[in-house]
């Protein structure tokens, strides 16, 4: 097929040539967010996979003004950017977005995020949650799910992996009483884009927590990123919820698939399928999903 050459305009915000792993859920999610947000925006970015794979000097995959400083201060530098744009009269036409991974958001950047939300800055914070410190080699974070094996919460003869449930950061953000909080998944791209569009239409602090499967970190074939993402939602382990002014206003109903369908294809959970004790853990994980289904009314 002889077709005209491909061209890429920086107005799309996020461009090819970045160095994300093949099948990266985060890169896909960033594209979806930028499709809505670009070009009239400024992005701040915490240290992590996204920052490293998108800006190895002298290359940048960004088509919008983009600022990286440190691991834990994406929300703080965004606060300063927002204040400066307001003072300069540029905030009317420019959206400020702050990006971070789960480590940079749920753990080390948690205080900075809370401060940003509490102060009422007109910023959309997007957390790309791949459930561990992937950039440094799959170490456990506060967003790592129960019983997942990571390099610092490894499964072994005396351990079933991570021994605490995933921190519910979206609910904590909602507890700040901010106008809009949502969870989303890159596997439900229309839903994610709708939420980004909705958030950018609201003035004030907004938070979107996006589930982004990671082929090397979770241990599944890279082609299956969308499928794995869908299963996390359809089992009830990653509920898609929206909060407005602190109250749940909308959820996505699910098929209520058994959690094994989501867990079994992933290397990080395979130890659960090898022993009787592991099966008991599977029951505990099913209980977490059931609790989510009950709490948010996910059953269709």
């Amino acid at each position: 097929m002889a077709t005209k050459p491909f061209t890429y305009d920086i107005s799309r915000g996020f461009l090819p040539g970045h160095r994300a792993c093949a099948g990266c859920g985060q890169a896909a999610a960033v594209r979806m967010v930028m499709e809505i947000a670009a070009p009239n925006c400024v992005v701040t970015n915490a240290t992590g996979c996204l920052e490293v794979f998108s800006t190895p000097y002298p290359e940048s995959a960004w088509g919008v003004p983009w600022l990286h400083s440190l691991f834990e201060n994406s929300a703080s530098i965004a606060s300063g950017v927002e204040a400066a744009l307001r003072k300069q009269g540029r905030l009317e036409n420019t959206r400020v977005l702050a990006f971070g991974g789960d480590g940079g958001t749920v753990d080390i950047g948690f205080g900075a995020l809370s401060g940003m939300l509490e102060r009422g800055h007109d910023i959309l914070y997007v957390c790309y949650d791949n459930e561990a410190y992937m950039n440094t080699g799959v170490q456990r974070s506060g967003a790592t799910p129960y019983a997942a094996s990571t390099t610092t919460s490894p499964a072994g003869r005396a351990s079933f992996g991570e021994d605490h449930p995933k921190k519910n950061l979206p609910a904590i953000c909602a507890a700040h009483g901010i106008p809009y909080v949502a969870t989303a998944s890159m596997a439900f791209f229309a839903d994610l884009k709708r939420k980004v569009r909705k958030a950018l239409g609201i003035r004030g602090p907004k938070y979107i927590h996006v589930h982004v499967p990671c082929p090397p970190g979770w241990g599944y074939p890279e082609k299956d990123t969308v499928e794995i993402g869908k299963l996390a939602v359809e089992t009830g382990l990653f509920p898609l919820v929206e909060w407005e002014d602190g109250e749940v206003t909308r959820v996505r109903k699910i098929k209520r698939l058994p959690v094994e369908e989501y867990l079994k294809p992933q290397r990080r959970f395979r130890h659960l399928f090898r022993t009787e004790e592991g099966k008991a853990k599977l029951a505990e994980i099913q209980a977490i999903a059931d609790s989510n289904i009950e709490k948010y009314g996910l059953a269709g």
């Binding site: 920052e51 940048s60 983009w66 600022l67 420019t94």
Partner: peptide, 10 residues
């Protein structure tokens, strides 16, 4: 956004 530079590269 009129002149969108990347600041803070790796």
């Amino acid at each position: 956004p009129e002149d969108p530079y990347t600041l803070g590269a790796f």
